[in-house]
Amino acid sequence: MTASVIADTKAKMERAVEAAKDDFATVRTGRANPQLFQKVMVDYYGSPTPLAQLASTNVPEARTIIVTPYDKSALKAIEEAIRNVPNLGANPTNDGNIVRVTMPELTEDRRKEYVKLVKSKAEDAKVHLRGIRRKAKDELDALKSEVGEDEVARGEKELDALTRSHVDLIDDALKRKEAELLEV
């Protein structure tokens, strides 16, 4: 029974780490990256729709992203949504067929702001992991009467090791992203 709690917790923690890595990818570096727009929501006929469902993105040059809408009538809405992305600093233009987004050069101050932002996202992910751990510990405590205290104690040790390893994965991803951001 404790094994199933640990297995569920491991799966949740792995998803949390992947979500953190995806979140890190939305913070831009010196290169244009279509993942910058992965969480952009476009007001498409009155309902918020993810940009990926409305257009394709490609990177023809290091600092340019081209967004090609599947429906040309969504062009203005896509341009507006990209313009409203916080911390991007880009000014999209459209030529009637595509939206061209040229990314500005990153200054040292801007890079440091992005590092702070990524550290904040990493801390949020760690808090989420600790929340998952707390729920699993509560589940294990509820099993005490059925499986015994020794089994629950072993499960808690395993849970702590699992939490530590996933926090380390987030820290590693943070270090990689920091190095990427500070690279000139």
Rank of each mutant, 00 (worst) to 15 (best):
D22A: 13
D22L: 13
D23S: 09
F24C: 00
T26H: 06
T26V: 12
R28M: 01
R28N: 00
T29S: 08
R31I: 09
L36W: 04
L36I: 10
F37I: 06
V40N: 00
V40H: 00
M41D: 00
V42S: 01
Y44L: 04
G46M: 07
G46D: 06
S47Q: 15
S47F: 13
T49P: 03
L51N: 05
A52E: 15
A55H: 03
S56W: 09
T57D: 11
V59F: 08
V59M: 12
A62S: 15
A62F: 11
A62R: 13
R63S: 04
R63T: 05
T64A: 09
T64Y: 05
I65R: 02
I65P: 01
V67W: 09
V67L: 12
T68G: 10
Y70R: 12
D71A: 10
A74W: 01
L75S: 01
L75T: 00
L75K: 02
A77L: 06
E80W: 05
E80K: 11
I82H: 00
I82Y: 00
V85E: 01
P86A: 11
P86L: 07
P86H: 10
P86D: 13
N87I: 04
L88A: 06
L88M: 12
G89Q: 05
A90G: 10
N94A: 07
N94L: 05
D95H: 04
G96D: 02
I98K: 13
V99Y: 01
V99C: 03
T102S: 15
T102K: 15
T102H: 14
P104F: 10
E105Q: 14
L106A: 09
L106G: 06
T107I: 08
E108Y: 05
E108F: 07
D109Q: 14
K112T: 11
E113K: 12
V115Y: 02
K116Q: 13
L117Q: 07
V118N: 00
S120V: 12
S120N: 15
A122Q: 03
D124F: 12
D124A: 15
H128G: 11
L129W: 00
